[in-house]
Amino acid sequence: MPDPISRCTSCGIPLSREHDVMFICPNCNNVQLGRCGNCRNQSAIYICPGCGFEGP
């Protein structure tokens, strides 16, 4: 399983670039989620591996 702290929750690429973001799951407050700039730009769905919350 990819490290949830440093990878994009949607596509799995490592987060290191501009426009990436990390935040705690707004639903369960338990899991660190990541979104890469590309997935954010495309409004790609992310699913919290902890609680199944589907964003954005």
Binding site: V21, R40, N41, S43
Partner: peptide, 9 residues
């Protein structure tokens, strides 16, 4: 609205 770059809509 588009949700581009929005992390929680």
């Amino acid at each position: 609205n588009e949700t581009k770059y929005v992390d929680l809509a």
